[in-house]
Amino acid sequence: MFSFHYHWFLVLLMGIAIPLLTAKTEKPGEFYPFSNFPMYSTFEPETYYVYVTDGAGKPVAIGTLFSKSPSDVKKIYDRKLSALKPREKGKRKLELSPPLKAEAADETLQWLEDNISNAQRSEMMTLGKLRLHEVVIVYRDGAISKSDVIVGERALAPSPATQP
């Protein structure tokens, strides 16, 4: 039987060495293209996602308009919540107060605005506002239920560069 040294080297690198070396970073275990693949390693009895609506309350196609996936938007919002968590000690991310969530939502919407392509920017400006919704999914009383809350919004103002 011959051994697979390279395979086990990678297992040790991604499974132990990198998680230890990156333990104090924002995302322990992540060092592209190496990862310890933490996603779906635990399942909580509660989960959530975010989506975006315009000034009229109509949902915005995140992938089509911003060329970003809803999953990326959620990760950005989640990271902001994690960063704000120490300001309300003892609370879980989803339990943070509305002002803190609004702060995280504002930064997330700002990120979307900043990273939109020039070709799509004019279309985004017609939306008037961007609102971020947080949808929490739980299993309660024998049924899956969702609660949808607007956590923040940004008015879209044309940047000086785009004004005539």
Binding site: P59, I62, G63, S69, K74, V135, I137
Partner: peptide, 12 residues
């Protein structure tokens, strides 16, 4: 449920 909803909001 979460992933399917997010898939919806990707392209509506």
């Amino acid at each position: 449920v979460k992933n399917r909803d997010m898939e919806f909001y990707d392209k509506l």
